[in-house]
């Protein structure tokens, strides 16, 4: 594969990643959200593998494999099990004002690109133009966590943010050292399990996974 071709592929996948982030922002069904998260993980794994192939960095293959196992298979599987056990597989969230959220999202994406431009010009990696996309994905997931009122979509937003961060690491630097990536992956996995335990506790206590029940602690 010639370098321009592989870099075009990475750009394509990066665009897909951003598109999926926008799709998640406007998606109301919990089940579809999990599918979108798995697809985002797949796009991330594929782009990491292409960068690995194009640059011959062995440790990026590990990273791609790790992403595939963790973010495409394991975490979506855990989430599927969770929504089955919590009987919320067919939950539909009422989202107010999707157009405003999308417009805010576009604003965030533009902000991310302008912030990333001076840095990407310094990068020597083949994927440098995608740093803006990575930052935009992080910010969009952040926005998703703010606008969602239910626990599961909030956690999916958090995991999407982690995807964006991993993409930033590959696009700016060809990936962090392996030991760090392993540590981060471990944290994400443990975090997902703890979130899972939490869902049951919240559900037991409030009979619902709606965060609105949990706004009692405030200054009066």
């Amino acid at each position: 594969m010639s370098e321009p071709l592989s870099s075009q592929f990475v750009n394509l996948l990066a665009a897909l990643l951003l598109l999926l982030a926008f799709a998640m922002l406007s998606q109301r069904r919990v089940l579809t959200l999990i599918k979108l998260l798995a697809w985002q993980g797949a796009a991330l794994a594929a782009s990491t593998a292409i960068v690995a192939y194009a640059t011959g960095q062995m440790h990026l293959y590990f990273s791609a494999g790790l992403t595939l196992v963790l973010k495409v298979i394991l975490i979506p599987w855990v989430l599927h099990r969770l929504i089955d056990r919590l009987y919320i597989r067919w939950d539909v969230e009422t989202l107010i004002n999707i157009p405003t959220t999308m417009l805010t999202g576009i604003g965030l994406a533009i902000f991310a690109f302008s912030l990333a431009t001076p840095i990407s010009q310094m990068a020597s990696t083949i994927t440098r133009s995608t740093l803006g996309i990575a930052l935009a994905t992080v910010l969009l997931s952040f926005l998703m966590m703010i606008v969602r009122r239910k626990a599961v979509p909030q956690v999916i937003g958090f995991l999407a943010m982690e995807n964006g961060l991993f993409f930033a690491a590959t696009s700016a630097t060809y990936g962090m050292p392996l030991v760090v990536e392993l540590g981060v992956a471990l944290d994400v996995l443990v975090g997902t399990f703890i979130f899972g335990i939490f869902f049951f506790h919240i559900r037991e206590q409030f009979d619902s996974l709606d965060i609105r029940h949990m706004e009692k602690l405030r200054e009066d």
């Binding site: 939490f198 506790h201 919240i202 206590q205 409030f206 029940h213 949990m214 706004e215 009692k216 602690l217």
Partner: peptide, 10 residues
């Protein structure tokens, strides 16, 4: 596992 402690932890 009180409602307030769950909210705080979340």
């Amino acid at each position: 596992r009180t409602p307030a402690s769950l909210e705080a932890a979340w």
